[in-house]
């Protein structure tokens, strides 16, 4: 936390420095949650060691015993399968680039929609539309892949049948599942389509938490709609946007497996645009259930995520010292 913000805090909280009694009360309030974290998150944390070991189980002995007494340290060997892979560059590119696009659109679109939502005259219409926009969230990627296939199948797909897309080179119907250029954009569309309704909710809730008097005051000053959005809504949404941004950035090395693997029907011809880190790990460990390697991949994703989150936090705080995560 920068000095400036500390000073601001102090100024604001004048005469209300938390007494140790307050502190105790707050601590007791979240004690159950703290215990939950200790039991379900921190107690199993020793499992990360597996990323640096060649784990061998021993029947009748606990995981912990086998981890320390039966398994060799292998240093960073478990990370080789990712780093040395011929797909490494593709993986980095697809994972990070898609995520950048997803993060930008994942903020821009829901925020815009959440603001517009409140401007529709008819409440009933607005609510009904918003409810429907939530539906794709319920459909699993496998189900989505059925529809996509119904549209894009080579011989019976709707698109090819309607538009008679024939490749001049082969004289056959266009094979959409080999068309990397198309999928590059289509994956973005699918992602937005599926997440739109869900991510709007957080921003809608934030907007409805805004004190109505602010708008009234603005009205008295004769502020236009655009001015209200610009000077009231957006600034008050900023902390939420910042936090959502920071948390999304932490997942920059992770990807939605269902989107890249299931929705694309695992088409080999699309590998160059669908091989994200998670997809690669899945394919690589399809035939050997190797906990060491999968843990190593998860660990790497976590470390990178940690670094990017801290970076994003610094960036956000430069813009708005109040909005950071830490």
């Amino acid at each position: 936390m920068s000095n400036l913000s500390v000073k601001q805090k102090k100024k604001k909280g004048k005469g209300s420095t938390g007494s140790s009694f307050d502190n105790l009360e707050i601590f007791l309030l979240h004690l159950p949650t703290t215990i939950w974290y200790l039991l379900f998150c921190y107690a199993p944390m020793f499992g990360v060691i597996i990323a640096f070991k060649n784990y061998k189980p021993r029947p009748g002995k606990s995981f912990l015993w086998a981890l320390f007494n039966n398994s060799k340290w292998v240093g960073l060997d478990n990370f080789k399968f990712l780093v040395n892979s011929s797909y490494f560059e593709t993986m980095l590119k697809t994972t990070v680039l898609y995520n950048i696009v997803f993060i930008i659109l994942g903020i821009l679109i829901p925020v815009t929609l959440a603001i517009l939502f409140n401007e529709i005259y008819s409440r009933k219409l607005a609510k009904t539309c918003q409810t429907m926009m939530f539906l794709p969230h319920f459909l699993s990627w496998v189900v989505v892949s059925y529809f996509v296939y119904a549209f894009l199948a080579t011989d019976q797909g709707l698109v090819n049948n309607l538009f008679k897309q024939i490749d001049p080179a082969t004289g056959r119907y266009h094979n959409w599942y080999a068309d990397t250029n198309f999928w590059m954009y289509f994956l973005v569309f699918l992602n937005v389509w599926k997440g739109m309704g869900y991510s709007m909710v957080v921003y809608m809730a934030s907007i409805s938490g805004i004190d109505g008097e602010l708008y009234e005051a603005a009205l008295i000053d004769g502020a236009t709609k655009w001015q209200q959005v610009k000077y009231i809504t957006l600034p008050l949404l900023r902390p939420t946007i910042s936090i959502m941004f920071i948390m999304a950035v932490g997942n920059i090395f992770r990807s939605d497996f269902g989107l890249f693997y299931q929705a694309t029907r695992n088409s080999g011809a699309l590998t160059s645009v669908t091989q994200t880190i998670d997809v690669y790990v899945y394919k690589a460990l399809l035939e050997q259930s190797n906990v060491n390697l999968s843990s190593a991949a998860a660990f790497l994703q976590s470390v990178v995520g940690c670094l990017t989150i801290i970076g994003a936090n610094v960036l956000v705080k430069k813009i708005d010292p109040e909005a950071g995560l830490f």
């Binding site: 060649n54 060997d77 080789k80 399968f81 040395n84 892979s85 011929s86 797909y87 695992n266 080999g268 590998t271 091989q275 690669y280 394919k283 690589a284 460990l285 399809l286 035939e287 050997q288 190797n290 060491n292 390697l293």
Partner: peptide
């Protein structure tokens, strides 16, 4: 230990074999 090589080969098969 060929686990690493197996992993890469597995991913290659996923791209080409079917």
């Amino acid at each position: 230990d060929f686990s690493t090589q197996y992993a890469e080969i597995s991913a290659l098969k996923a791209e080409y074999m079917s």
